[in-house]
Design a protein around this nucleic acid. Sequence first.
DNA 1: CCATCTAACGCAAATTGTTTGCGTTAACGC
DNA 2: GCGTTAACGCAAACAATTTGCGTTAGATGG
Lengths: 192, 192
Amino acid sequence: MGAKPRSRPGGRSARVQESVHRAVRELEAERGRAELTVPLIAARAEVTPSTIYRRWGDLQVLLSDVAVERLRPEGPPADHGSLAADLETWAVEWLEEMSSAAGRDYVHDAVAGDREGGNAGQCSAYAAEQVAVLLDRAAGRGEPAPDVETVLDHLVAPLMYRILFRPGLLDADYARGLARRLLAGGTTGPAE
Amino acid sequence: MGAKPRSRPGGRSARVQESVHRAVRELEAERGRAELTVPLIAARAEVTPSTIYRRWGDLQVLLSDVAVERLRPEGPPADHGSLAADLETWAVEWLEEMSSAAGRDYVHDAVAGDREGGNAGQCSAYAAEQVAVLLDRAAGRGEPAPDVETVLDHLVAPLMYRILFRPGLLDADYARGLARRLLAGGTTGPAE
DNA sequence: CCATCTAACGCAAATTGTTTGCGTTAACGC
DNA sequence: GCGTTAACGCAAACAATTTGCGTTAGATGG
């Protein structure tokens, strides 16, 4: 009577999830997100609607899961020889991806269908992971480098804040400026 | 054949909006937000569901409108005699409000039901307005003061980012530290 | 390898939410 | 006032969601 198996992630469940996620991606591309409904997705995925409702609860939660998957970085950020170049380039590219029409939709979906914050947390973790690579690389070169926390606070956060709360105030120069001031500011250590 | 009147904000429309918004607030308090449905709200507001659907589109948009209303600041921020004290106190209090269980729900609703960004923009405008008061006051005293933009980027944005993307990493000391470093950092002018 | 257990699924009926057409009301401009 | 029409009420048509129950197929232990 010990702890009993409470989940069953293997085989069929995994196939259903994959099939449903793929159906969402395909239908979004074909019909646009305004047309997406649970019954429509279920039909494409060859699954009954009740399966989707039981696993995800509702459409928003499903879209949130799919969005987070699409926001996962493809690979490690490029190496440009110095932290300044690495961070500026990464910031500009990250912003481009996130502030595009598609990127903004994914970010929006990711937070909208996620009351507990797990998916949003995953998005932040992706960014933190990429930043950590840049900072470790700088440390390997002997360059002084700020905290991951500091970069999230003063580079990622301002960019994301504008994406969500102040659309239309974003360009590559702004991202570069944030990166540059972050490194120039002498904020090279932990917060306090 | 000139520009024709395309809206009718007066009298009845205003009464319906007020009644519906109040119904949302009451029912949320009584039954909790998970129980909220358009038909339920319509019944309480003594309005037909189709009225709500035609005006707001769906429940999320309505909840977004109500949430933004609740996030409106009550009055001007308190005066503590110096920019440092004003900004630190304002940051701590703003964070307290926004990171509480209710505050987080309102922020979440505000952005979730708002694909165009108008309501989210209003939230940011509220913060900008409050910050501007503090900075004007500082200027009146002859104190050096940063930009509103700088405060949004390096104080409001990091706080909001953690509220949405990294729940559980927030306290008053963190807010105070951001405010303090912002003023100490010498970032007293515009971005570039 | 086979037997057993049960989480996850399929199906279909019941429920509930959403859309829509059409007639009515009342805010706005003249 | 008087006409115009945006916004609303009503109810029928439509679509989505929930739910009970039987079935399937991973997982577990012998």
